[in-house]
Design a protein around this nucleic acid. Structure first.
Length: 462
RNA sequence: UGGUCAGUAGCUCAGUCGGCAGAGCAGGUGGCUGUUAACCACCUUGUCGGGGGUUCAAGUCCCUCCUGACCAGCCA
């Protein structure tokens, strides 16, 4: 007999008839002549209630031995529930245990802290919260591809191992096959990376942007969606050492089109979550964050605020008395400033654009005012920076001067400069941190709980 | 990495002024029975994060180390 997912049974317009379900026991309650068994198979947040009669052949040996966490196959007939709280239930004709969980099963029938669940990452996907996160994560991953396909973007695979550092994006993890206890050295005594596997220093990518630009200047519109690594000693609820980033890049786009794309993208994903993950969102709204659905509805329906850095700085300077760090034109926006703009002043997602060039990366396009670059950040309530993007400097001389001005070695960027020499075009793109999007979509507080196996300083178990 | 707070039973936590180690849940036994984190009664469970110090006496005060969370920085 084929197995029926619990989500299919519970969302059916009529009882599903004779079925087999397979999953894990959440709880068992014994009545006089039968037991209630609630099982969850991961297909949805809801459990299926099983009625296991004491007259079953397997009752004494199997049913009465079932504990929270045990795995079972159950066959029976779906029928309308006699009790309150569920539409259907399964009257079992056979209950078979695959594995009985001993009494030291770490997940109890009660609320656990997320800190505790991180210590048992091999079992936490069986919880309602993490299960819902992972289903939504899967759904939004699919939606990302749908959006870009609909918009005519091609999915590009940029390298994980790289020898180019996207300057300013962060510290890289080193990739090497050298013997770290006895590396080859040059006559000067420094480690000789010419003898390393790739013939030079290599690391894990901190961004696919530079390679993305290569492909955009051939295919027009592209995006990447892959793992990204930052070896920063960051200890916050918003940072991971390994995270997934979406980076679209489009030839002939300028900053306004880039902002339009970012806004349409976030709105599409919010709408997708509301339309396709209502049950999981209802769970988050009830148990995690009572504002999450209304926030997604706001994103889905109302335009983002757009404000230039200069105007944003004016707003902040008028309220300087409320900040620990006072704002003046040219200062970088601190977390408290970003959150004031999006959470207090505008109370919705805000796109800040045209930042002072001194506080932004070398590849961003200089504006004609000589002071600012065509950069933009999308700030959202509760998180701060969700997206960072820019129009790229496509003018060869301007880019070369910028590289020299800030002391980078132009030889390391020869191919990046070549793109400007051979048929360069205006182009723009941005990076969106997938886990930060999931924080927004779930209302979860810590980024370590929206990825199955989080990596952060001191932690890469599992 | 800096700042703040925390670490007590398997889990979630209380523990007052330094004076016998506690509750709920989980687990066990019995009862009840269409339950919903089932319910009722009784019972079991401790390296009070590690080390050192002060004291007649330390979960409690001091020093130190470890671990975690939050805030800040780095950014997505």
């Amino acid at each position: 007999m084929r197995t029926t997912p619990i989500v299919v049974i519970l969302t059916g317009s009529a009882p599903a008839g004779r079925v087999r379900v397979q999953g894990w026991v959440r709880t068992r309650r014994d009545a006089k002549d039968f037991s209630f068994i609630e099982i969850n198979d991961g297909s949805c947040v809801a459990n299926l209630q099983i009625i296991a009669s004491a007259s079953l052949a397997s009752y004494a040996e199997t049913v009465s031995a079932l504990t929270t966490g045990s795995s079972v196959s159950v066959e029976g007939d779906v029928r309308p529930s006699e009790g309150k709280g569920q539409k259907y239930e399964l009257l079992a004709t056979d209950v078979m245990a695959h594995g009985i969980a001993p009494v030291d099963y770490p997940l109890q029938k009660k609320r656990h802290t997320f800190e505790y669940l991180r210590e048992i990452a091999h079992l936490r996907p069986r919880t309602n919260s993490i299960g819902a996160v992972m289903r939504l994560r899967s759904g939004l991953s699919f939606a990302i591809h749908s959006f870009f396909k609909e918009q005519g973007f091609f999915y590009i695979h940029t390298p994980i191992v790289t020898t180019s550092d996207c300057e300013g994006a962060g510290e890289m993890f080193r990739v090497t096959t050298l013997d770290i206890n006895n590396p080859p050295r040059t006559e000067a005594g420094v480690v000789d990376f010419n003898k390393d596997f790739f013939g030079k220093e290599a690391g894990l990518t901190v961004s696919g942007q530079l390679e993305g630009e290569i492909c955009a200047l051939a295919l027009g519109k592209i995006y990447t969606f892959g793992p990204t690594f930052r070896a920063e000693n960051s200890n916050t609820p918003r940072h991971l050492a390994e995270f997934w980033m979406i980076e679209p890049e489009a030839a002939f786009y300028r900053l306004p089109e880039d902002m339009d794309l970012a806004e349409a993208f976030v709105r599409y994903l919010a709408t997708y979550a509301l339309d396709n993950h209502g049950d999981d969102l209802a769970f988050f709204n009830e148990r995690i964050d009572q504002g999450v659905i209304s926030r997604l509805e706001g994103i889905s329906t109302s335009p983002f605020e757009r404000v230039s850095y200069t105007d944003a700085a004016d707003i902040l300077m008028r309220n300087n008395d409320r900040f620990a760090f006072k704002v003046s034109w040219g200062s970088d926006l601190q977390s408290e400033h970003e959150r004031y703009l999006t959470e207090t002043f505008f109370k919705k997602p805000v796109i800040v654009y045209n930042y002072p060039k001194e506080i932004k990366a070398f590849y961003m396009r200089n504006n004609d005012d000589g002071k600012t670059v065509a950069a933009m950040d999308v700030l959202v309530p509760g998180i701060g920076e969700l997206i960072g993007g820019s129009e790229r400097e496509e003018r060869y001389d301007m880019l070369l001067n910028r590289i020299r001005d800030i002391g980078l070695d132009e030889k390391n960027y020869w191919w990046y400069l070549d793109l400007r020499r051979y048929g360069g075009t205006p182009h723009a793109g941005f990076g969106l941190g997938f886990e930060r999007l999931l924080l927004l979509a779930t209302g979860m507080q810590n980024i370590r709980d929206v990825i199955p196996f989080p990596r952060y300083p001191g932690n890469a178990a599992f």
